[in-house]
Nucleic acid binder design. Structure first.
Length: 438
RNA sequence: GGAGAGAUGGCUGAGCGGUCGAAGGCGCGCGACUGGAAAUCGCGUGUACCCUCACAAAAGGGUACCGAGGGUUCAAAUCCCUCUCUCUCCGCCA
């Protein structure tokens, strides 16, 4: 197993280009960036060596000038000579900056190396089901889609949201509003109380560097909402602010592992998803999510991934929603992930399982970009941590799953047992109580 | 939004053109002293990148880094400009 040692740093790429090439091929990605990297890297080092020699000359001669002046001697010739050297230094520095700029862009665009246990695939058809919990829900009547259930009860209002904002937004009214908040609180309580996570309510906007730190930029800028006239982006997931809480830090070994459960709204432009999931709560520009984030020692990160996945599963089990766990193939693996499990819930309207959570081990990929290290022991060299993130879980999709899986023949929806205490004891949403007022 | 003050190594705190990777203190590590410890004394204590070596490690050499980015200068922690952040006061506001 080489899992814990994969480093996507420049030396690694330089010394093992074939490993990276293989990784890109597995991901069905072009190796263009890799080739460009190798080319630029060589250029850079050549130029750097020359430049540093010149700087060395300038430094030693400057000392000499200082000495001459102190002794009251004439240094004009040397000063003139160094003027020229400084000019060359300047022009070489600007060449170097240009190369490094491009090198950085290229480097930032190379995805993480998949873990050996990740199934190799050509498309999302090659994802491998790992396990199932419960069975697809059976109905003795014709089940409705959640958007129909919600609209019939008057608690989901897509039309008004289109009027007020645009498509892929929704107003949650009455019991839907309460249910959304109940789900958030339930999930936070479960993860903090039972699984040992520390709750976080993060900023919903971050600056560019944070987006780069967790890998959303520079490659996927079109997927994010940017606030005009600022450098702020609306977060696509709480993973971004929460992981970046620790950017540019050297943590103490005793701080690890760090577990956070963060509530946030999430904003996604869904560029490239035109025409997909146009109805209902499944694909919105804004949705709520409770996100799990871990910072751990490299040796433990794969165990931590299993545990995190189980923690997310616990949400669905406690709510009684049928689901399966899928190991994502190299074709479908996220940019930052070395390994990823998806949780998919049974969605009657789709007649199939639909993603409700992704749990990823990013190894040191994000830690390297965000510069998050820890010191393994006194006097020891700082190492990059491993970061993990997983939905625990997407709230809007959970609402959809509850509406569909808990729907009754009369159009009402039973509230899962575990949520009732969060809903003032309500056990069922009916047409009569849908607006939730007395 | 207005006025002011500040940002230096793990922390604290000097430095205000060359001798500064950066005094002093604290902390930490190693050693001496001790039966052991405390105190005391001595030595040491950043990171990144490049080069040399067949890779790596070690070692040696070099470059850079005093909030960030530019500029002036033979030479910048030190001078100039821009930006960011923090603190104080005033105003406004949920």
């Amino acid at each position: 197993m080489r899992g814990g040692n994969i480093m996507l740093d420049q030396k690694r790429i330089r010394n093992n280009p074939d490993e990276i090439r293989e990784s890109l091929v597995k991901r069905n990605e072009s190796t263009e960036n890799l080739d460009r990297f190798l080319e630029l890297d060589e250029k850079r080092r050549g130029l750097l060596t020359e430049l540093e020699k010149l700087k060395n000359l300038r430094n030693t001669e400057s000392e000499e000038i200082a000495r001459l002046k102190k002794e009251g001697k004439d240094a004009a010739a040397k000063i003139e000579e160094m003027r020229e050297v400084s000019d060359s230094v300047k022009s070489m520095e600007s060449d170097l900056a240009e190369i490094e700029g491009e090198l950085n862009t290229v480097l930032m665009s190379i995805p993480n190396v998949p873990h050996p246990s990740v199934p190799v695939g050509k498309s999302d058809d090659d994802n491998v089901e790992v396990r199932r919990w419960s069975q697809p829900t059976q109905f003795d009547f014709q089940p409705k889609a959640h958007w129909d259930i919600g609209e019939d009860l008057g608690i989901l209002d897509f039309a008004t949201a289109s009027k007020v904002t645009g498509s892929r937004f929704v107003f949650l009214k009455g019991q839907a509003c309460k249910l959304e908040l109940a789900l958030i609180n339930f999930m936070l309580d479960l993860h903090t109380g039972k699984h040992g996570y520390v709750a976080v309510f993060p900023p919903f906007m971050v600056h560019r560097h944070s987006m780069e730190g967790t890998g959303q930029l520079p490659k996927f800028e079109e997927d994010a909402f940017k606030v005009t006239d600022t450098d702020y982006f609306l977060i696509p997931t709480a993973e971004v602010p929460v992981t970046n809480m620790y950017r540019e830090q050297i943590l103490d070994k005793s701080d690890l592992p760090i577990y956070h459960a963060a509530y946030s709204a999430c904003f996604r432009s869904e560029a490239g998803s035109a025409g997909r999931d146009t109805r209902g709560l499944i694909r919105q520009h804004q949705f709520n999510k409770v996100e799990l984030v871990k910072l751990v020692e490299p040796e433990t990160s794969y165990d931590e991934l299993e545990k995190m996945t189980n923690d997310a599963e616990d949400v669905l089990q406690t709510l009684g929603i049928p689901y399966r766990v899928v190991s994502i193939s190299t074709a479908d693996l996220g940019f930052t992930a070395a390994k990823k499990y998806d949780l998919e819930v049974w969605m009657p309207s789709y007649g199939r399982y639909v993603e409700i959570s992704s749990c990823s081990n990013c190894e040191d990929f994000q830690a390297r970009r965000a510069d998050i290290k820890y010191r393994p022991g006194r006097g020891e060299k700082a190492r990059y941590v491993h970061t993990l993130n997983g939905s625990g879980v997407a709230v809007g999709r959970t609402m959809a799953a509850i509406l569909e899986n808990y729907q009754q023949a009369d159009g009402s929806v039973v509230i899962p047992e575990a949520l009732r205490s969060y809903m003032g004891g309500l056990d069922r949403i009916t047409k009569d109580n849908a607006m939730g007022r007395r």
